[in-house]
Write a protein that binds this DNA or RNA. Sequence first.
DNA 1: TGCAGATGATGAG
DNA 2: TCATCCTCTGCAG
Length: 270
Amino acid sequence: MPEGNIIHRLARVHHRWLAGRQFTADSPQGRFSQDARRLSGRTLLAVEAHGKHLFHHFEGGVHLHLHLGLFGNIRHFRAGAPPPSAACRLRLASPHATLYLSGPQSCELLSPEAERTLRARLGEDPLRPEASPARAFEALRRSRAPLATVLLDQERISGVGNILRAEALFLAHLPPQLPASELRPEDFERLWAALRLLLEDAARDGRIVTPHAPPTALTLPGKRREDRFTVYDREGQPCPRCATPIVRLALSGRGLFFCPSCQAPRGKKR
DNA sequence: TGCAGATGATGAG
DNA sequence: TCATCCTCTGCAG
């Protein structure tokens, strides 16, 4: 379930709970056993997120890099952790907290140099304080591909996933098919503001709920997942702005949801 | 109980 | 563009 908001939330929670503590590490699944031994006994100094990448900095210049990919999951327990599943790639345990990591796309130890190289490739992360909207704008405009495709390119803007791109494009009134090179400054300002709003709220609340989602989405814990969104996963349901049925398109093999009326290409608004 | 699909990324062709 | 990797969940039968 990880987009940038989830990763930033994990970084904040882990930093608050776990920094300054010493951990033992092992790999119940066995695929990380050798590196886990290198981690074991070290004190965690800091945790930070960049886009969808999570970095745990341990003493001695040992940096744990995690990318959860599509299936990865991290569970944390303050006490009474249940036995890990057989798929648990990494268990980090201290007397105060235990983490279970399963299904990550990347779980590796990096030198500080390797981490710098990796992060140099990543685009602007709207949740990071040093993020430059101007650089993000230029990065997007360098591509002639559809905006919806370019938004998922982590080397241009990092942290945006399939839900956030759909919801942000909707909030910004932008057609997903618009060539990114034709993005105007005023379009980008709305898009950047929408991304920051969605990411900040979701990083704080632990889940994405868009401003146009039904009010019950914020109050009913058992609410269906798609009711938290305005367009994502709502094919055929009425757009909250104009009541036109939401459309789903397959773009590069992934579902793209949008309103064909209020996100119509320029000059084709219905 | 088994299968399809999912909020991701990469490499081959 | 497609296949592949990794894990979990929801749903059909």
